[in-house]
Simulated scan of single mutants.
Amino acid sequence: MAIIGKDRADITEEDVEFLRANYTSAGGLIPNAYSGGAFFTPTHVARFIVEALRGLSGGSFAEGARFLEPSCGSGVFLEHLPEDGEVTALELDETSAKVASLLYPAANVILGDAFLHDRRDYYEYVIGNPPYGVPIDIAADELPDGFATLTTAKGRAKGKSESAFIELAIKATKPGGYIAFVLPKGIGYNSQAAKVRDLIRETCWHVASVELPGTTFAHVGTTISTDIHILRKVTPNARKVYVKYGQRGNGRFPVDIVEQMDESAADTVWYEGQPPVFHVAITDIGYDKDGKSTDKYGDGLTQLDEILEAFTDTLVRENCDPIAPVNGASHALNVKVPPHEDWRVKAGLYAYWNVLTLGRGEEINGESSFDFDWQDLIVTQYNEGRR
């Protein structure tokens, strides 16, 4: 705090390095890293998210790619972004914002309420670990536009932070852009999150979900269950596809199937270009509940590093048997290990599978549901049509 109190001209390189090593983005030093729903994100988790997006972008980010971190804290995600990117970072806490601006001077760090940020359809990537369970309470007339996840009464817009941050990300991302957030597991099933699940289904392709173990945030005194969800904002030229799920065969593991239907007979709706959703359950984050390293091989790599190759190739596991969404859900946000993958988790290995969306290679509007270039083609056609 003595460093933060200095004039910028008096802050030395040694001061900056001290902040980089010790500041947790919660206004204190490790292990005091929880404040108002914000958890310090381990740097290798932030790195994984950035590298997964790099893989989904063909192995590299375009020069000048636009990034938004709407709740940046001290900037752990900013550390891994390309130097030639256009990076905007929002932060409500004055101390954290100053730290982030000192550590990452190339980023445009903006002190203020993220929900007043009015750039729409602009960023190629929106990333972060937004606050969980924090009540949002803001003057409705200050918002740049309406929020479906906030309820307005007596001039105040109120709701839960995690849902509102997802909606903000969707608004800010350009069509065809990516969103990657660390979110509480309840997003997938809580009744309070129903509105945001509907919003995601109506506006996004679901790319992948990665379940993190309870030890991920053990270093800050919590075992909160979290998932990384990666979404891609649908372009207006993508048409809706209505489907119904069923099963074929008998025995313990019947085969899940999907059939295209009229809207009135369908279970749910996806968009053209939607591949099977890639799901992973990580069992080892690199340390145990006491913070001790679990690195058996001394190479500094974790299970997150091991699955990165999937994001540079196809997100469907070879010889995988895609399964229908859990318990008839109309989305794939529930990350629940299927029975045929349970043994991997019990053995301490990561489990990965695919959630069935448009079928097992069936033809949808003239394209195969297993054509993983289809989504990119739709985005390319949209961008070319706007030139």
Rank of each mutant, 00 (worst) to 15 (best):
G5S: 05
K6T: 05
I11R: 03
L19P: 03
R20K: 02
L29T: 09
P31I: 08
N32D: 13
T41K: 01
R47V: 07
I49E: 08
E51M: 06
G58I: 13
G64T: 14
G64F: 10
E69H: 09
S74C: 06
E83P: 00
G85I: 09
G85P: 04
E91D: 08
D93W: 15
S101E: 10
P105L: 03
P105S: 04
A106F: 09
L111T: 05
L111D: 04
G112T: 06
L116E: 10
Y123N: 02
Y125H: 11
V126K: 00
I127H: 11
G128L: 03
V134L: 10
P135D: 12
D137F: 02
D137E: 13
D137C: 09
A139W: 07
A139V: 04
A139I: 04
G146F: 14
F147K: 00
F147C: 02
T151C: 07
T152P: 10
T152C: 15
A157I: 04
K158N: 13
S161G: 05
S161Q: 04
A164V: 09
E167K: 04
K171N: 05
A172F: 10
T173C: 06
T173L: 13
K174V: 06
Y178D: 10
P184A: 10
G186M: 03
R197E: 13
I200P: 05
W205E: 14
S209F: 04
V210R: 00
V210H: 02
L212M: 06
L212C: 00
T216S: 03
G221H: 08
I224M: 08
I224L: 01
I224V: 10
I224R: 02
S225G: 03
S225F: 11
D227P: 05
R232K: 15
R232W: 11
R232Q: 13
K233E: 13
V234Y: 01
Y242W: 14
K244V: 07
K244R: 11
Q247P: 14
R252G: 00
F253P: 00
D256L: 03
M261H: 04
A266V: 15
Y271E: 04
Y271K: 02
G273S: 07
G273L: 14
P275W: 08
P275C: 00
I285H: 01
K289W: 10
D290R: 05
K296S: 12
Y297Q: 12
Y297E: 13
L301T: 12
L308F: 05
E309T: 11
E309P: 04
A310D: 09
A310Y: 09
T312G: 09
T314V: 08
T314L: 04
L315E: 03
P322M: 13
N327L: 13
N327T: 12
G328S: 09
A329W: 12
S330D: 12
K336D: 08
V337G: 00
P339C: 07
E341T: 06
W343F: 07
W343P: 02
R344P: 01
A347N: 11
G348P: 10
Y350W: 12
W353D: 11
N354I: 02
V355P: 03
G361K: 12
E362Q: 13
D371E: 15
D373M: 11
D376K: 11
I378A: 01
T380Y: 12
E384N: 07
G385R: 15
